[in-house]
């Protein structure tokens, strides 16, 4: 049981007792008649699985929180709940401020459309007004290092190119809170340094950042605080370097 967070007005994110239950359907009734039969006979074919249990933390305005954990520990589930694309089963979440998200690197683009078209659609989804995006678009393309390729369909992009485009669009949003999933694992060293510099600048600007990473080093250098998730529960929470050290020594 972790200590319930003391929420204050200076917090950008307040999460308390968040839990997510998935129903593992071994045999999913996808037809209506099957569903009706199951309903009448009161057959529950699902098996509950708690991907996240009693997760509580707060992120102060301008703070940076890192989330570490192994595959299947619930990191992405937590991030999706914070981003609002997944509803929690239980618990309380408050996100105070405008938000930009970068979930699932390279996802979210339609392969048949050009990088430009996809960037504008992602921008619209993230809430960047079109004139603003148009104005800053050259800069965005330069940052993503895609000058030559912006007008070709994204199906011809490499994983690194997709990641760079996604990151550049998310960073173009003038949001108070950034939720970023596993960006630092992709792209070459030079691009990673650029991303880190950009994120630092945003933090210096008073923006709040939550990042998930497999890479403990990145969490340690970017975040003040960290959460270690293990099989859906918080195993450790506190100073980033301490949590990361504990996590690293456990495996």
């Amino acid at each position: 049981m972790n200590v319930p967070p003391r929420a204050s007005v200076d917090d950008a994110i307040v999460a308390s007792g968040l839990g997510k239950r998935f129903r593992l359907r071994h045999e999913r009734p996808t037809s209506l008649s099957r569903q009706l039969i199951d309903m009448v006979t009161r057959t529950d074919r699902s098996e509950p699985f708690w991907a996240l249990k009693d997760v509580s933390f707060t992120v102060p305005r301008g703070g940076a929180l890192g989330i570490v954990g192994r595959n299947g520990s619930g990191k992405s589930t937590l991030l999706k709940i914070l981003a609002g694309t997944l509803a929690p089963t239980t618990g309380m979440l408050e996100v105070r401020g405008s938000m930009s998200t970068l979930l699932q690197l390279g996802g979210g683009f339609h392969p048949d459309f050009t990088g430009r078209n996809n960037a504008f659609l992602s921008g619209a989804l993230l809430g960047i007004p079109e004139p603003v995006l148009r104005e800053g678009f050259d800069e965005l393309v330069r940052f993503a290092e895609l000058e030559q390729f912006i007008d070709i369909p994204t199906k011809y992009y490499s994983a690194g190119m997709l990641a760079r485009l996604g990151f550049a669009v998310s960073m173009a949003v003038d949001a108070e809170i950034m939720i970023i999933d596993e960006v630092l694992g992709v792209g070459d060293a030079a691009f990673q340094r650029k991303c880190e510099a950009r994120m630092r600048a945003m933090m210096a600007d008073g923006r709040t950042i939550v990042i998930v990473s497999h890479d403990p080093g990145a969490v340690k250098t970017l975040c003040q605080r960290a959460v270690w998730l293990d099989r859906g529960v918080i195993r450790a929470i506190g100073q980033a370097d301490e949590v990361v050290a504990e996590y690293a020594s456990a495996y």
Binding site: G84, M92, V95
Partner: peptide, 16 residues
């Protein structure tokens, strides 16, 4: 066990 866990309905607020 899972069904005996008291599940209070979630409350999610996004100010924006």
């Amino acid at each position: 066990m899972a069904s005996s866990v008291a599940v209070t309905p979630p409350s999610v607020t996004f100010t924006h």
